Amino acid sequence: MTETTGTWLTQEAYDRLQAEYDHLVNVGRAAIAKEIDERRQEGDLKENGGYHAARDEQAKMEARIEELRRKLADATVGEPTFDGTIASGTVVTAEVMGREMRFLVGSREIADGTDLDVFSAQSPLGAALLGRKAGDETSYEAPNGKQITVTVIAAEPFTG
């Protein structure tokens, strides 16, 4: 899997996101519409904090629905093939600025319930590691402009 093929998700993560999407679309929308209608019944909308709060909540929910829709539509589901090369779905142990770190290159959704830090494949660190193997050295430019050297110690597929 490469960074251009979408988000890699385990079946469990995909199912969890699909369930959240289904709940928001089928239950959440109806509940927030009812809440907005009840607040609208209270009178003057200009001074109705409950109404405005419900509308804000509706906007947040719709943004999350759209985010989930895009993720699910672009997702690659299953176990990643692993040949030792770092790709989305790889747990990496690396030395970064003299400190050993262990993290997942991928999406935060698949690491839910683990103690792994997550770097997306599009992040500066994740992008620098794509295609690398244990023993490789690379670098990336930090947001402050500093070059950060990274040495890959180990790479393994994420197993949940």
Rank of each mutant, 00 (worst) to 15 (best):
T2A: 15
T4F: 15
T5N: 15
T7D: 11
T7V: 15
Q11D: 09
Y14T: 02
L24H: 07
L24P: 09
V25N: 11
V25Q: 14
N26M: 10
V27H: 15
R29V: 13
A30M: 02
A31S: 13
I32N: 02
I36G: 11
E38H: 11
R39I: 01
R40A: 14
R40G: 05
R40K: 14
Q41W: 00
Q41N: 01
E42P: 00
G43K: 03
N48I: 01
G50Q: 03
G50R: 06
A53S: 09
E57H: 13
A59N: 09
A59F: 09
A59Q: 12
K60H: 08
M61C: 08
E62Y: 07
A63R: 11
R64C: 12
I65P: 00
I65H: 11
E67M: 06
R70P: 01
L72N: 01
A73H: 06
D74Q: 09
V77K: 02
V77A: 05
P80I: 13
T81M: 02
F82Y: 08
G84L: 01
T85D: 00
I86P: 04
S88Q: 13
E95L: 13
E95V: 14
V96I: 13
V96K: 06
E100P: 00
M101V: 08
R102T: 12
F103L: 13
L104W: 05
G106H: 05
S107W: 02
R108H: 05
E109K: 12
A111Q: 06
L116A: 03
D117F: 07
V118T: 13
F119G: 14
P124T: 00
P124E: 05
P124D: 04
L125I: 08
G126D: 04
L130A: 14
G131E: 06
K133V: 07
D136P: 00
E137Y: 04
A142W: 05
K146C: 03
K146H: 10
Q147W: 05
T149N: 12
V150I: 06
T151F: 06
E156D: 09
E156Q: 10
P157F: 00
T159S: 08
